[in-house]
């Protein structure tokens, strides 16, 4: 059967997580896009990368560290921005580059032994290499205790030294591989590695974010439309803004597992830009954006797996495909749309 792979548990986990992530990224992202803060998600994801590295460095579960570091970083920068009147794009650049810089440094100095290795196979493999190393250490130690040194023994010594250095080389290779693998997972996403506990966490976060959005929807929309007027209406604009930043941080770190640090902003931005081409009202725009996002994520995973393509790239390319088709429809006037006019000749 063509869709036999759908019965695979890891694919099912990927789809469930993907749907949840698509839902909250597109809704939170719409408010960021409307506030001309489209790349904020990207900045948060890059900060999260620094957070992941920090988690590995201090031996805390990397994702939790990422949540804390990216949310604290974003809130801190927002406070600084207000205090020193730093522009939005400059704030995004500061957050983005500092996150990635911290990540690179911490990844490079963190020893793989300290990494939180979830994969049993990796742990066994690593232990295996360590055992070999230890047994050879003992062997060479015993041999050193012998007073008599024969030619055979000498050659054996050399051999064992060769083996030892070879194993050490293997160990370093593995460490490098593990380092690269860890970094790659966070940079490009690892949706098929998602475990049951991750799925539950993602679903809970999704429900919490959607409930908060439902409760503060009117106030958030008003503060997005005009902060000054919202303040005059008695809306606690600062609190609402901090809440949006917090939700964006959670959304960015969570979606990092799906599409990776480098592509997070795609989920925040692209479906919303496409939806704004058609949406005649806010409700219509948010519905369209969510639909485009869900379509891209679900189809991206379904198409990518049988062809052995990386799902994250496939998801983003599908979202871009929808945007290109939308721009063509808009510019040729096939479907009458209002508002958002792309500068297409």
């Amino acid at each position: 059967m063509v869709f036999e792979f759908l019965s695979d548990q890891s694919v099912q986990y990927a789809l469930i997580s993907g749907i949840a992530i698509a839902l909250f990224c597109s809704t939170v992202g719409l408010f960021l896009v409307l506030r001309k803060f489209a790349l904020f998600g990207d900045a948060l994801a890059h900060t999260a990368f620094g957070g992941v590295a920090f988690g590995l460095f201090i031996g805390v579960y990397p994702l939790w560290a990422a949540y804390i570091v990216s949310i604290l970083g974003a809130l801190g920068l927002t406070k600084l921005r207000q205090r020193f009147d730093i522009s939005g794009d400059a704030a995004v650049a500061i957050l983005l580059t500092s996150g990635i810089a911290v990540g690179i440094i911490l990844f490079s100095i963190t020893d793989v032994d300290d990494h939180q290795l979830d994969d049993e196979h990796d742990v066994k493999q690593l232990n295996g290499i360590q055992n070999i190393e230890e047994s050879h250490d003992e062997e060479s130690h015993d041999e050193e205790s012998h007073d008599e040194e024969s030619h055979d023994e000498e050659s054996h010594d050399e051999e064992s030294h060769d083996e030892e250095s070879h194993d050490e080389h293997d160990m370093n290779d593995f460490r490098d591989m593990k380092h690269a693998h860890d970094m790659e997972e966070f940079l490009f996403g690892s949706i098929l590695q998602i475990k049951q506990e991750n799925v539950i966490t993602i679903l809970i976060l999704c429900v919490i974010i959607l409930i908060i959005l439902r409760i503060i929807y009117k106030k958030l929309l008003y503060a997005t439309f005009s902060e000054e007027q919202a303040k005059v209406s008695g809306i606690p604009v600062e609190k609402i803004n901090y809440l949006l930043i917090g939700m964006s941080g959670v959304a960015a770190v969570t979606s990092m597992q799906l599409v990776g640090v480098l592509l997070v902003s795609a989920l925040f931005v692209i479906p919303n830009v496409s939806a704004m081409l058609y949406g005649r009202s806010f409700k219509q725009t948010i519905t369209l954006s969510t639909s485009f996002s869900l379509f891209s994520v679900v189809m991206g995973i379904i198409i990518a797996i049988p062809f052995g393509i990386e799902p994250s790239g496939c998801i983003v390319l599908l979202a871009i495909g929808i945007l290109i088709v939308s721009l063509i429809i808009k510019s040729t006037g096939i479907v009458k749309t209002t508002g958002f006019s792309p500068k297409v000749a």
Partner: peptide, 16 residues
């Protein structure tokens, strides 16, 4: 007003 702000007049009044 951002020309691309996707809200109707009715929605603008409802949010305030």
């Amino acid at each position: 007003i951002d020309k691309n702000f996707p809200a109707t007049i009715r929605e603008i009044l409802a949010m305030s």
